[in-house]
Design a binder for these strands. Structure first.
Length: 232
DNA sequence: AGCCAGATGTCCT
DNA sequence: GGACATCTGGCTA
C-alpha cells in the first residue's frame, strides 16, 4: 500500500495523499490489535470484507483510519499512519490549521447539481467559492503556516487533512464511486520503493513486532514515539 | 528528549 | 467505577 493514493471527495473538494507509512495489525492473535479481545461494536468493520475503511475515535479527539485486509470473519487491518498530500493542499491546509481553533472546519452542504459531475469551469468555481472560509483568526497559524510535510504526517493528521471521521467507517475503498477510495499510483511505475520497517508506534503489547513500514527517507513519515508508560 | 493537557469512547473489573 | 487509548500540540530543558 505504500505509494498508493488515498483520496476523499467532499463538498469542499478532493484531497488526496500518497501513503508513506503504514502499520499492520492482525486480529485476535495480535495483542496490539483492536480485535484482540474479540468482536465488539467498535471493531465490527474489522470482521467484514477486505478493502473497507475501519475508522476509530481515540484520545477523545482524534480519528484514525485502517484498511481491512483479510476475508470477512478474519479481523485484520492496516493503519494508515502518514501520507504526502498530492491533491487539494489548500483545503487540507485549512482543515489542519483549524485544529487549533475550537471548531472543526465546517464542510458546506453537498450541492446537488442537476446533471453531470462537477467539472472545471463556472460550476467548479462556484463550488470552490462555497468551500470553508479561512479558519478563525488564528495569529499563530497565520504567522507560521503548517509545514507541508506535516499536513498528513501522523494517523490523526492524515484523517483531519482528508476529513475522515465516523461517517467514513465502513466505506468501500475499492469502489471508484465511493467518496473515500484508494488507488494505485498513477503514471508509469518508477523504481521499486525503498521500504524500511520497525516497531509499531504507541503500542504496549506486541511492541517488539516490527510491523510498521515506511518509505525510507521520506520526510512525511511520522516521528517514532514509544508507548508512554503510565503510572499505576 | 521529555513532560503534559486535552476530552470522550470503549471495555475492563 | 475507572483505566487507558494505533495521538497531537505546546511547553520546558
Amino acid at each position: 500500500m505504500l505509494g498508493w493514493v488515498l483520496e476523499h471527495e467532499t463538498a469542499g473538494g478532493v484531497v488526496a495523499a500518497e501513503l508513506t507509512e503504514v502499520e499492520a495489525y492482525l486480529g485476535e492473535a495480535d495483542p496490539a490489535s483492536h480485535a484482540f479481545r474479540g468482536r465488539t461494536a467498535r471493531n465490527a468493520v474489522m470482521y467484514g470484507p477486505p478493502g473497507h475503511a475501519y475508522v476509530y475515535f481515540t484520545y477523545g479527539m482524534h480519528f484514525c483510519v485502517n484498511v481491512t485486509c483479510q476475508p470477512a470473519g478474519a479481523a485484520s487491518a492496516v493503519l494508515l499512519r502518514a501520507g504526502r498530500i498530492v491533491a487539494g493542499e489548500s483545503l487540507a491546509r485549512r482543515r489542519r490549521a483549524s485544529r487549533r481553533a475550537a471548531a472543526p472546519v465546517a464542510e458546506p452542504p453537498a450541492p446537488v447539481p442537476a446533471g453531470g459531475p462537477p467539472a472545471a469551469g463556472p460550476a467548479a468555481a462556484a463550488q470552490r467559492a462555497a468551500e470553508p472560509p479561512p479558519a478563525e483568526p488564528d495569529q499563530a497559524a497565520a504567522a507560521v503556516p503548517i509545514p507541508f510535510r506535516d499536513l498528513a504526517r501522523g494517523p490523526a493528521r492524515l484523517c483531519q487533512a482528508l476529513a475522515i471521521g465516523r461517517e467514513q467507517n465502513g466505506a468501500d475503498l475499492f469502489d471508484p464511486a465511493s467518496p473515500l477510495r484508494i488507488r494505485p499510483p498513477a503514471g508509469p511505475a518508477g523504481p521499486p520503493l525503498a521500504i524500511s520497517a520497525g516497531p509499531r508506534v504507541g503500542v504496549t503489547l506486541g511492541a517488539d513486532t516490527r510491523w510498521r513500514f515506511w518509505i525510507a527517507g521520506d520526510p512525511t513519515v511520522s516521528v517514532y514515539r514509544p508507548a508512554k508508560r503510565r503510572p499505576r
